[in-house]
């Protein structure tokens, strides 16, 4: 498969922020700052797989509590079969709204979305998005796929 060159981490963050808005989650998700408490990502993950990310799990996510990231990250993300991918530093997202780290985190959630049972719905939504966003999303998926373990 061809690759499209290294990802610009800021562009990745911006494009995936646009993508995550297509989930129509309750929490506002227009800016990097909106994402820092982890609530949007938890709600997006629940839409991706409401059996795995069930109500008991999401009840551990509190908008005003600082340890949401450990819940989202350890339970939601680490199960993916990828190697050699620099995992996001969630403390930088929570404390400094770091867009590069947020981009990595959203990239992993994108990986969940395009591998889940309802992937058709998510992929078709991506295909309706602006071409520049699609291009970044494609590159992000290609990067993940290149690091997938069998």
């Amino acid at each position: 498969m061809s690759t499209s060159g290294p990802l610009d981490r800021l562009e990745l963050c911006e494009s995936l922020l646009t993508w995550v808005q297509t989930f129509g989650v309750e929490a506002q998700c227009k800016t990097v700052e909106d994402m820092t408490n982890g609530v949007v990502m938890a709600q997006a993950l629940q839409k991706i797989d409401e059996v795995y990310f069930n109500d008991a799990w999401i009840s551990r996510i509190k908008p005003d509590v600082g340890d949401n990231w450990s819940v989202v990250f350890s339970y939601g993300i680490l199960g993916q079969h990828i190697n050699d991918f620099t995992l996001p530093d969630v403390s930088l997202i929570g404390e400094h709204s770091d867009p590069a780290e947020l981009g990595r985190m959203l990239q992993l959630i994108l990986g969940c979305a395009v591998n889940c049972e309802q992937k058709q719905e998510y992929i078709q939504t991506i295909m309706m998005m602006e071409e520049s966003v699609q291009h970044v999303v494609m590159t992000a998926i290609q990067e993940l796929m290149s690091k997938e373990t069998p």
């Binding site: 795995y52 939601g76 993916q80 395009v114 889940c116 049972e117 992937k119 295909m127 699609q134 494609m138």
Partner: peptide
């Protein structure tokens, strides 16, 4: 005209990629 051709090519690459993703076997979630 060249721009239109380049645009169509990009569109084709994107469509090919996402269509191949659609036909890929679904992995385990999470």
């Amino acid at each position: 005209d060249a721009n239109m051709k380049a645009g169509a090519a990009t569109e084709g690459v994107l469509a090919n990629f996402f269509n191949s993703l659609l036909s890929k076997k679904t992995g385990s979630p999470g």
